[in-house]
Write a protein that binds this DNA or RNA. Sequence first.
DNA 1: CACGTCACCTGCGTGC
DNA 2: TGCACGCAGGTGACGT
Length: 275
Amino acid sequence: MPELPEVETFVRTLRPVLVGKTILESDLRWKRTLAAPTPKKFVQEIRGQKIEGISRRAKFFNVQLSTLREPQGKPSNLIIHLRMSGDLLAVLGGYQPGTHDRLILKLTDDTSLVFCDPRKFGRVWLVEDPDEIFRDLGPEPLSDAFTADWLYASLRSRKRLLKPLLLDQKFIAGLGNIYADESLHLAKLHPLTTSDQVTKKQAEHLWSAIRETLEEGIRRNGASIDWVYRGGEFQNHFRVYGRTGEACPTCGTKIRRIVVGQRGTHFCPRCQKGK
DNA sequence: CACGTCACCTGCGTGC
DNA sequence: TGCACGCAGGTGACGT
């Protein structure tokens, strides 16, 4: 489900609800959802931990915890990735587990944190050092580290198709299929353009297109599609994603769909030339 | 290093 | 109505 703007929206919604609460009990309902440590260790270690903060890195949640139980308990981090169909919600009052709930954390103040994930692709880690998970990620596209110069140099230094490159989390962290297609359309770049043939000017356009698209996604509280997720309204402002055969908002040409790197890819054949 | 293919999973919409 | 099929917001492990 989520890309950077959706995760960011979740973080902003969950933060005021979760911070300060303590985890009383955990209910791991699908073992493979837990990537590390072992279920036994996880259930033992997470009990009694207090939620100090919640932040985002790329499409990951990082829930920072501190142990109140033992005097020298080490601070740890609950890392969550929703992958395709995951959902994370805080529920007040008695909670009855649903069919697709994979992990439920019972918190103080009669609150539950529910990780629901129909397709079971989502993963949860409990680690001391979040960098263990984040180490190989590329720059945050909304941070100062992501500059037009950096993007230009990085595009030129490899020879990759733009679409799969934008989806590569080691290159830039946080874009997914929707925001990659939308960014390429805004930048007027064909998804099959080879990265080493992008001009400086095009790189600058792509840089601002990525930022604008992500910022608009966040401003609209993310995109809600299909039966998963709710709340956002960016889906009502897609220019190309999921609009195969409809008119390009810029020039009216019919949007085309091709498959690139096994992913559906939407673009305007008139606005996005170059292949 | 870059690319293709498969695997992991369930559920929904479409067309016969 | 039933059923097969294609599609889905992601990523990692392979092989070439």
